Amino acid sequence: MSSQRLIIYKFSSLYHILEELSLDINFKIIYLDSENLLYEKIKNSNNYLIISNKKNLNFSNHIYLDNKPMNISKLVEKINIEFLKLHFNNQSHVKINDYTIDLNSREMMINNNKLKLTEKEINTVIYLIKKNESVSINELQKNVWSYQSDIETHTVETHIYRLRKKISITFNDNDFIVSKKNGYQIE
């Protein structure tokens, strides 16, 4: 069973229709008629959609359906598209210590403070965090810049210097990328 959950909130007729189709759909269907249960069900998750005929629900990932006749296959298609969007958005945010990096907008954020990053800066940060150890300049040249290691260049050092400066100015953080004797690391 998929980990995607469609929560049908106070819309029992829709629940019964989709329940009949449950073998042919790729998401779990849950019916709730209590707002408290709804909050409880979604509080530690982001892989859900709420569908209801209540217009002004203050929940993220909410789809409003009025009671007009609808084509059920179009509805299932719409739900699947919303799950795809949700999945894409969830994948686009990378958490690094107290920071969040939005890969789509290329922004680094903490609280309400944002810093715009270049694609190469994003790639550098992502590479460093995935390695979880000190990374040499030659390795960064090869894997982030696609340079051969025998070429004499200060591209990596220059980019790291500029990135650290941007982060220091914006977030007052001088320790995001640290220098080690054999390269750079995000701790």
Rank of each mutant, 00 (worst) to 15 (best):
D150K: 12
K43W: 04
Y99G: 07
W145G: 10
L86P: 06
L117P: 04
S134Y: 06
M108T: 11
T155M: 13
K120G: 06
V156R: 02
V156K: 07
M70P: 02
N53A: 03
N138D: 14
Y48H: 09
D66Q: 09
H62V: 03
Q148V: 10
N111Y: 13
L140N: 00
N174D: 10
L117T: 08
S52I: 00
S92D: 10
S136R: 09
K142Q: 13
K78P: 04
I137A: 04
I126W: 00
T170R: 10
S92H: 09
N172W: 02
S146K: 14
D150E: 12
L115W: 04
S136C: 02
I129H: 02
L115S: 03
K74I: 01
N113K: 15
N138H: 11
K43S: 08
N44A: 04
I81Y: 11
K131M: 13
I50R: 00
K142A: 08
K43C: 07
K116Q: 15
D150P: 03
D150Y: 15
L57C: 05
H159E: 14
N46L: 12
T170F: 03
Y127I: 02
I167N: 00
S60C: 05
E121L: 08
F83V: 08
N174W: 09
Y48A: 06
K120F: 03
N47Y: 08
S136L: 11
E82N: 14
S45C: 05
K114Y: 14
I110N: 07
I169Y: 09
H87M: 09
D150G: 04
N46E: 15
N113T: 15
S134I: 10
N132R: 12
K68W: 00
S134C: 12
S92R: 06
V144D: 03
K85Y: 11
N113Q: 14
N53T: 11
K130H: 11
I169A: 10
D150S: 13
N90C: 00
V144F: 06
L140P: 07
S136W: 06
N56K: 05
F83A: 03
S60I: 13
W145C: 02
E157D: 06
K130S: 12
N132Q: 14
S168M: 14
S73Q: 03
Q91N: 15
F176G: 11
L65H: 01
I79D: 03
N97V: 10
E107A: 08
N56G: 09
N143E: 14
V76I: 15
H87F: 09
Q141C: 12
Q148K: 15
Y147P: 01
E139V: 11
I167P: 02
I50V: 15
